[in-house]
């Protein structure tokens, strides 16, 4: 129990780091877990963040990270695949390790997830989002890994290593790190075909026979990340205390809705952290 932390912040963008520094300011133990780079890094100029006129998104993000580091907060990179609310604490599956936290702040940004035909229908019947979760069930069987995330190649190699007959599909050329024994198809999966369970996928115009398809996107839909989480128009539903419908679970930044702006993200991160700290104190 001693390694259960007070606050797990999911996402290392402006909302996440704002939450983290404010959590530390309230004397809480915190870890920042991040799957991807914030889009702020790609912003050419930022002109609407008070005090920083005509600065690049990259430079501003660097300042944010330096600020966090000065307070001892180093973002940990990996994939949070599931977050399970368990009453008075949460379990987080972070890159295959379980982290326990009393509260969680979701600062996961927005992801454009376009489900493909058959995906929802065959989820758990051949469709999986997690190689390390379901891989063992496909040992000795055919599985297509559709790589939309940067770590998808690693997952494909992992599946190959445990004895799955893997085909890797992704746009562009064959990735260098892909195990030489894994066949590669350049393209995107456009449809999942099956009856009771998956029998094939459509890649470009071709039908590829397979029993499994691992869809590895950069982001996971919030409702797939946390069971029971309420959303509205694709955004996480919060009140003005940044509370979600699940006690102890807060959200901040772009994932809670428009405007998708830096100042709002930073402000919401602060509110979420203070409310999480208050919630933790109320449990004692």
């Amino acid at each position: 129990m001693s390694d259960r932390i007070d606050i797990a912040v999911i996402g290392g963008g402006p909302a996440g780091l704002s939450a983290a520094i404010n959590a530390v300011a309230r004397g809480k133990t915190v870890r920042v877990l991040s799957a991807s780079e914030t889009p702020l890094k790609r912003a050419e100029t930022v002109d609407n963040y008070l005090g920083f006129y005509n600065i690049t998104g990259g430079d501003l993000m660097k300042k944010f990270e330096e600020h966090a580091l000065a307070l001892g907060i180093a973002t940990e990179h990996g994939r949070a695949a599931n977050i399970m609310p368990l009453g008075n604490y949460f379990m987080i599956n972070f890159s295959g390790n379980i982290i326990e936290a009393t509260t969680v702040i979701l600062a996961i940004g927005v992801a454009r997830i376009r489900e493909i035909p058959g995906e929802a229908e065959f989820l758990g019947k051949g469709v999986s989002y997690c190689a390390t979760c379901d891989g063992m069930l496909f040992r000795g069987k055919k599985a297509v890994v559709w790589g939309l995330a940067s770590d998808a190649v690693e997952e494909a190699n992992f599946l190959h290593g445990i004895g799955v007959d893997v085909t890797f599909a992704a746009k562009g050329g064959r990735p260098e790190e892909l195990n030489a024994d894994i066949p590669f198809i350049s393209g995107a999966v456009s449809e999942i075909i099956g009856e009771k369970s998956v029998t094939a996928v459509k890649i470009n115009k071709d039908i590829v026979d397979t029993e499994g398809v691992f869809i590895l996107r950069q982001a996971i839909a919030p409702t797939n990340l946390v069971p029971g989480l309420e959303t509205e128009n694709g955004y996480i539903k919060v009140n003005n205390k940044m509370e979600t419908n699940i006690p102890g679970l807060f959200a901040a930044g772009d994932c809670t809705g428009v405007p998708l702006q830096l100042s709002k993200a930073v402000g919401e991160g602060l509110v979420a952290a203070q409310m999480a700290a208050k919630y933790i104190d109320s449990l004692k």
């Binding site: 695949a81 599931n82 399970m84 379990m91 379980i98 390390t132 979760c133 063992m136």
Partner: peptide
């Protein structure tokens, strides 16, 4: 299976 461990409780 990590998610299974999370469902355990």
């Amino acid at each position: 299976c990590m998610p299974c461990k999370m469902l355990g409780p």
